[in-house]
């Protein structure tokens, strides 16, 4: 286990380096001079030139690159010019909002998707099964942007039940906080819910017919235990894989959902920073998101071991990725 962790942390370094390099060059390839974008259309040519100098944009590319790497290695992320505050503060302000949305979407997806998948598998080829399969097929192929807009139109504009945009705060009361969370969570949870239902359905169909399930029944266990203990735990591995992928995607900031609902999270931050050509913010947030991905992947691999004792983390073929 310790050897495994050490190895994974070492492996993290090249991954992050590659991400850092790619982000650097992609941001430089964006059209438009950041200084000009930040100063706005009224700025004079001299102002722009002076500002470019200040940003180091006139330095040769290799020098910019090495400065950038050096800052990264020394964990000096610098300040955002457009937001006028340290990047670290900016991320620490936005990231919790993203976690909040991601976690509530994930919980929603698990609460709805997993039982739906289990029931569909148990009632294979019945109306319930067909409904779950059809709904989840619609769910995975749903354009989230469209869904988000429809939710807002119906629940906020027509019915007026829920706020359309923004994030609530606990200081304004619990309901204010929750009501702002509901629509974006539903929009964000749609795809994972459908995916979880499909995955659990198919892996439960497989485990339900296994011999150990017959053994569990022959021991006189209640059907609830047979299904939810003996069959379900064996059906978990594929679920953990998609859950990990989904959760890291959610934590990276749900760009579409955050944009539709003006949710002040990482996704909105990245979009905003790209528009403003605030390179420093783009670079740092993307690298931060990359770290999150890697960490979640690591947690997923450890979870494999938890659900399946045969997985050996220290060997190369362990993990089942």
């Amino acid at each position: 286990m310790r050897g495994f962790l050490f190895k994974r942390i070492i492996q993290l370094i090249p991954t992050l380096f590659i991400v850092a390099v790619i982000v650097f060059f992609i941001t430089r390839m964006l059209p438009g001079n950041p200084a000009a974008v930040m100063l706005g259309p009224q700025a004079s040519a001299e102002d722009i030139a002076a500002y470019s100098d200040k940003l180091g944009l006139n330095d040769p590319m290799y020098q910019q690159f090495f400065d950038y790497l050096l800052n990264l290695v020394t964990l000096d992320f610098g300040n955002s010019l457009s937001y006028n505050q340290p990047i670290v503060d900016l991320i620490m302000e936005r990231f919790p909002n993203t976690i909040l949305l991601a976690v509530s979407a994930l919980i929603l997806a698990v609460i709805v998707g997993v039982p739906a998948g289990i029931i569909a598998a148990r009632k294979q080829n019945t109306l319930i099964d067909y409904s779950v399969t059809t709904l989840s097929l619609i769910g995975v192929s749903m354009p989230i942007f469209w869904l988000g807009v429809m939710l807002v139109l119906y629940f906020s504009v027509n019915l007026g039940w829920l706020p359309a945009t923004g994030m609530g705060s606990l200081e304004d009361g619990f309901w204010d906080f929750i009501s702002h969370l509901i629509l974006p969570s539903i929009a964000l949870a749609t795809i994972p819910t459908s995916q979880f239902a499909r995955i659990i359905r198919s892996s439960m169909l497989e485990t339900i017919s296994q011999d150990y399930v017959k053994t569990a029944r022959s021991k006189g266990l209640k059907e609830f235990m047979v299904i939810n203990k003996h069959a379900f735990k064996n059906a978990l591995t594929p679920l953990i894989t998609v859950m990990g992928l989904q959760f890291s995607a959610l934590l990276g900031g749900a760009v579409l959902t955050e944009t539709i609902f003006s949710w002040p999270g990482m996704g909105l931050l990245i979009i905003d920073a790209i528009e403003k050509r605030d390179f420093v913010v783009v670079q740092s947030t993307v690298i931060f998101v990359a770290v999150i991905y890697v960490v979640i992947n690591l947690i997923v691999d450890i979870l494999y071991k938890v659900v399946n004792p045969k997985v050996n983390l220290d060997s190369n073929n362990g993990g089942g990725k």
Partner: peptide, 24 residues
Amino acid sequence: IRKVRGNEISMIFQDPSTSLNPVF
């Protein structure tokens, strides 16, 4: 019948490598 299973009448199967649950 559940009270009979595993209590008054038990059953063992052909392949012990699949009839025990691998994750418990």
